[in-house]
Design a protein around this nucleic acid. Sequence first.
DNA 1: ATACAATGTGAGTGATTAGTCAGTTATGGT
DNA 2: ACCATAACTGACTAATCACTCACATTGTAT
Lengths: 195, 195
Amino acid sequence: MRALQPKEEKLLMAALRLFNEFGFHNTPTSKISKEAGVSTGTLYNYFQSKEALINSLYLYIKQHSAEYVRENFEMTDDYKEGLKRIWTLIVKWGFEYPEFFKFKESFCQSPFIDNLEMEKAKADYDFLGKYVQAAMESGVIRNIDEGLFLSQIQGVMVSTIKYINKNDLGKCSDTINKTFDILWNGIGADKGSVF
Amino acid sequence: MRALQPKEEKLLMAALRLFNEFGFHNTPTSKISKEAGVSTGTLYNYFQSKEALINSLYLYIKQHSAEYVRENFEMTDDYKEGLKRIWTLIVKWGFEYPEFFKFKESFCQSPFIDNLEMEKAKADYDFLGKYVQAAMESGVIRNIDEGLFLSQIQGVMVSTIKYINKNDLGKCSDTINKTFDILWNGIGADKGSVF
DNA sequence: ATACAATGTGAGTGATTAGTCAGTTATGGT
DNA sequence: ACCATAACTGACTAATCACTCACATTGTAT
C-alpha cells in the first residue's frame, strides 16, 4: 500500500466517519475538510473530485482487508482447516474494523460506482476464490457451479459480520465457529457416507 | 394494500425506475414527475416530501413481497417441505420482480432511512421467522440462536437472488433447489441416516 | 538573506434542486 | 348553466454544494 501523506489520510478517515453516518450525498466536501482540519482547497489538492476521494477510500479499505488476510493466514494442507482460517480472518477483519466494513458494504451497493470499480471489487475475494477452487478439485467440497458457490459463501459471511456487529458480540469466536459449521455442513462433501 | 390512485402509482413506478438507475440523490423530483407525466406540484400533492415518496415506495414493495408469499404459500405439516416452499417463493419473488428487489436492497443499505423504518423492515421476514421457530421447536432443524439463524438464511437468500438476477438464469428452479439443499444441509438436524 | 517552489487557504461562483404558491383546469352536485 | 371544490400546473425561490483561483504561508536550495 502506497504510504499516504498525513493530510491525505486525515481526509480519508474524516470522509469515512461522515459517509458512514450521513451517506455519500449528505456529506458535503466542506464538512469533510473541516472534520479533517484542512481547507476545502486542500481536499482538491489531494483528490481530483469528491468521487475520486470516494474511490480512493474504497481502494484503501480493500487493500487493508486483503493485507489483513494475507498477513495472518497460515498455510495448511487440510482444505477444511484452511477454509476455516480464511473464513475466520475475513469475519474478524469485519468486526475489528467495523467502519471499514460498513463503508465497503454501502459502496458496493451504491449505484453511482462505475462497473469497472465493481469488477475490481470482486478481486477482493480472489484469495478465497482460488482456495475454494482448489478445495473443490481435491474433492473436499461439493462440486457445484463455482460462481454460485462463492456468492453463497460471501452471503453467509456478510450476514455473519453484520450480525456480530449489530449484536456487539465479544464472544464472537463462538459465532464464527457456529457459522462456519453451518457453511461447512452445507458445502462439505464429508457427510455421512454417500456424498 | 390500499388502492393507489393512478398518478400516485405512476409516480412511484417512475421513481423506482430512476432510483434504481441513478440512485436516490441523483434523481431530482423534477425528473420523477416528468417521467411520470405529471407536474412537479402534483408530486407534492401525493407525497409530503421526496423522502416520504421514497418511504412510500419501500412500503409498497414490502407489502407486495409479503402478499406474494402469503398468497402462494400452501400449508404442509412437513417443516422441511414448508421451509423449502417459503424459500422458493421469496427467491422467485426476487427474480420475478427484480426492480422491486433491487430497490429494497439499496433502501435497506441507505444510511438516511430512520431506524424506525429499519425495524419495520425486519417484519418482512416475520412469516419466515415464525416458521423457523416452529421448525426449531419440532426438532427438524438445529437449535441455535434464532437471530443468527435468520440472518444466515437471509444472507444466503439475498445472495441467491442476486446471483440469479446477475446471471440471468431462466433455469432458476435448479438454482433454487441447489441453494436450498446447501442451506438445509447446513441447518437441518437430520444428517447421517436419511441422506 | 534571497529566490523559488510547493503546499495550503477560504471567499466566491455557477449550477442544481427540494419545495411553494398563485393561478388554471377538471369534476360533480344542484 | 352555475358554482364550489378538488386536482393540477410550472415558473419561481431559497438553499445547498462541488469546485476554483487569487493569494498567503511554509519549506528548501543556494
